[in-house]
Write a protein that binds this DNA or RNA. Structure first.
Length: 603
RNA sequence: GCCGACGUAGCUCAAUCGGCAGAGCGCCCGCCUUGUAAGCGGGCGGUUACGAGUUCGAUUCUCGUCGUCGGCUCCA
């Protein structure tokens, strides 16, 4: 999570500790499995891992034993010794270590790093030794194992991981650990993990009755409960208002489509494996639609278009279905049915930059609305080796459109990072990476250029000279999908939504039965004013009613007892625990309506 | 899909060595009439995910299926 600012992680002391802890772990593992083959073991965020090829699978008991042995090793106070050697010498040392030999060859010949990625220059080969363990490694390490405190590291989990990240390669066993400078830091980190669990959207979604999954319905197919339905409605209202002002037009398209459409769009050959299999009707194959774009292209093409009509912005909260592999599903973040905040913008080439930046503006507006402060714009480009496979085979247009995106981002003064080989098959894109409050990173908004589909669909408009011209298409989804967005918002707000998004905005609480009718009448008046409210007239004590409302994170509690009823007033308790007595109802209504209409996080 | 762990009431969890499946919350009924985070009593609620196997006997051991979780891979 939080690394010290400024200093690069690779240069930090913590990095050395973790890197060294990985070597100590490898020593411990190889003592238990002398025939095991070590591969690589780098530091990662918050810790380190080491991948092994072992004769059997590790058990939780093994982890305990390994951790115990690691404590003994570090307390042996062994120096880390670095030696620079030639490739020949290295190969002799690691003669019976196939993975190490492959690494050495990579370093020697191609200049490949430990992940198999190309390096700029041919690196020197060095080995590090501590106690009985020797590893090919560029370092750096701490000077002595005593710097790894026996009470400041912990083995976390074991998982499968493919050699060099390629699922066609052998699956190795990856052992994850966390390591810190001292015991206090470790405890803080473990505490942070506990806190993070409380904000997990899966837990909050259940507690706040936002969504549920049912085995019988199917994995990755969320059922939105009434409270979730409200959040969805509010997000759609936000999108609709925003898009109306930005000149978008709303369309609606069906959930299934003939095979022909997806063949034409080019999706089928690329993504057949991650789509629901087809259903056959009257000899024709139909698919659940995995995205909306082909249908929007059809709408664009449904009549003649003039340059005067452009840009044309077609928006739809379309429900799409994708067959995500079972192991990839994750709460609401990765699902098989999703409602996308989708739109396709058709532009002439000279309109591209303005429209592209217009979309980026939209993100930034939304980010500020949701208080998202940390984000990174990732400019994803094609990879040359994927042309004709992962990517449409037209290098000239790739280079051209990538330059257009780069120029737009620079002219728009928007910071971004360039990433090779992560584009969509039809063009370069900007993905926005953000971090939830529990430090989970994922991609929300996306903004993609498409030069391929307009050609495949033969899209055209009549230009100023009376000739046909092909538009470019911008795919965009600033609010991502309802699923991912709401999952994110749950974590981000820890379930305490701003008033406008709260499923229940106010709960009226009567102190005794005498006030039940008064409470009901207040709730009715609130609802008449567009505030989502209910009255709790159950037989519970006031304290219990308040607790229930707090647990559901309802922003406003209107408490009414004898005094309030006689004075025709209310007592306001806010979710943050503050309270104000002798409130006129009209005053509260004005306050709530103000918060709602401004969509502010303020209570 | 792959590796590993897990699956007990609506929810959160317990159940010794293989020996009658339990608690709190929620829900229903009753009592209490209450002043800013849980008032009291009673009741209902279970094919221990599903299916086989071992056993006199399986929540417990074995196998398979389904689902969830931690990762890997993937994400138009």
């Amino acid at each position: 999570m939080a690394q010290q600012a400024q200093e690069k992680y690779e240069d930090s002391y913590l990095y050395k500790i973790r890197h060294s802890a990985a070597h100590v772990m490898a020593q411990a593992v190889l003592e238990i499995f002398p025939d095991g083959k070590p591969t690589i073991g780098p530091p990662v965020e918050n810790g380190f891992y080491y991948d092994f090829d072992l004769p059997r699978n590790l058990t939780p008991e093994d982890l305990e034993q390994i951790e115990k042995r690691m404590r003994q090793i570090v307390q042996g106070k062994h120096d880390f010794k670095k030696t620079v050697i030639s490739a020949e010498e290295a190969k002799k040392i690691f003669v019976d270590q196939p993975y190490k030999l492959e690494l050495i060859e990579g370093l020697e010949k191609g200049g490949l790093d430990e992940y198999g990625n190309p390096l700029n220059e041919k690196p020197e080969i060095s080995i590090y030794q501590q106690d009985t363990f020797t590893d090919v490694c560029r370092g750096p390490h701490v000077a002595n194992t005593k710097e790894i405190k026996p009470d400041a590291f912990k083995l976390m989990s074991v998982a499968g991981a493919y050699w060099r990240g390629d699922e066609n390669n052998k699956q190795l066993q990856r052992l994850y650990g966390t390591a810190w400078e001292n015991k206090k830091q470790l405890e803080e980190y473990l505490h942070q993990l506990e806190e993070a669990k409380k904000r997990d959207h899966r837990k909050l979604g259940k507690e706040l009755e936002i969504f549920t999954f049912d085995e019988e319905v199917g994995p990755g197919l969320p059922l939105w409960l009434p409270n979730g339905g409200i959040v969805i409605e509010e997000l759609e209202r936000l999108a609709k208002e925003t898009e109306e002002q930005a000149g978008y037009l709303r369309v609606k398209t069906p959930s299934v489509t003939k095979e022909d459409l997806l063949l034409r769009s080019g999706h089928l050959p690329y993504y057949a494996e991650s789509m629901y299999p087809p259903m056959e009707l009257e000899g024709v194959k139909y698919y659940a639609k995995p995205m909306n774009c082909p249908m929007h292209h059809k709408i664009f093409g449904s009549k003649g278009r003039s340059y005067r009509d452009l840009p044309i912005r077609l928006a739809e909260y379309g429900l799409c279905y994708r067959y995500e592999k079972s192991g990839e599903l994750f709460g609401l973040m990765r699902v098989r049915s999703m409602q996308m905040n989708d739109a396709h913008i058709y532009v002439a080439e000279d309109q591209f930059e303005k429209e592209f930046l217009g979309v980026t503006d939209l993100y930034l507006k939304y980010f500020s609305l949701f208080g998202i402060e940390k984000y990174v714009m990732r400019f994803s480009k094609h990879g040359k080796s994927g042309l004709g496979k992962k990517y449409v085979d037209n290098e000239r247009l790739w280079i051209k459109t990538e330059e257009m995106v780069r120029r737009a981002m620079i002219n728009g003064n928007i910071p971004f990072v360039e990433v090779e080989d992560e584009a969509a098959f039809y063009g370069p894109k900007i993905d926005v990476q953000i971090w939830s409050a529990i430090g989970r990173e994922f991609t929300l908004a996306t903004n993609q250029v498409d030069f391929a589909q307009p050609a495949r669909f033969d899209l055209k408009f009549t230009n100023r000279d009376g000739h046909d011209e092909m538009p470019l298409c911008i795919h965009r989804a600033p609010l991502s999908t309802h699923e991912r967005m709401i999952g994110f918002l749950l974590e981000h707000y820890a379930g305490a939504f701003p008033v406008w998004l709260s499923p229940e905005q106010a709960r009226v609480i009567s102190i005794t039965d005498e006030q039940n009718e008064y409470a009901e009448s207040i709730a009715r008046e609130l609802r008449a004013n567009g505030i989502r409210a209910s009255a709790d007239v159950s037989s519970q004590r006031m304290n219990a009613k308040i607790r229930n409302a707090q647990v559901m994170k309802i922003p406003y509690m209107i408490v009414v007892g004898k005094n309030e009823m006689e004075a025709g007033q209310v007592s306001l308790r806010v979710r943050d625990g503050s309270q104000q007595n002798g409130f006129a109802l009209g005053e509260f209504i004005a306050k709530a309506k103000d918060r709602i209409s401004r969509r502010t996080a303020e209570l």
